[in-house]
Amino acid sequence: MSKKMHITLTVNGKEEEFLAEPRELLIYTLRERLNITGPHIGCETSHCGACTVTLNGKSVKSCTMFVAQANGAEVTTIEGMGGPDALHPLQEAFKEHHGLQCGYCTPGMITRAAKLLEENPNPTEEDVRFGIAGNLCRCTGYQNIVKSILAAAATMNAAKEAAE
């Protein structure tokens, strides 16, 4: 054991404070300490993207970050995007267009897609495929995931225009 550190994190808008060993991986902090189980552990070796969260405005694989590194950060997980009563347009689109089968990759996929659309609100199909290349799906063959993300982009852009 190494010395525990005092950690402060803002997760989905809520401030969390606790003591943790610096080596704790952020995915375990979220899932086991804070009971935020949306982000999944797929590979645990930085390859699959199931653990993707948004950290200080970046899509990050939370299995490849020590809690000490994340100290002071703002984290958004799928739980922070929308819930059953008020789905995020991406969640709605994945539901509508069969963007998931088993659903294991979906929280990471949607979290990553949200960041992608924030950076590029009008992506081409190729942009979407390149932009989610860090997220693996074993079920869908990606076809409907790409379709869902493009549909969500259209919905979000239409909503933005209507608001202007």
Partner: peptide, 9 residues
């Protein structure tokens, strides 16, 4: 290099 998540870090 790598994928989008890795390139942010």
């Amino acid at each position: 290099i790598a994928d989008p998540q890795v390139r942010y870090m």
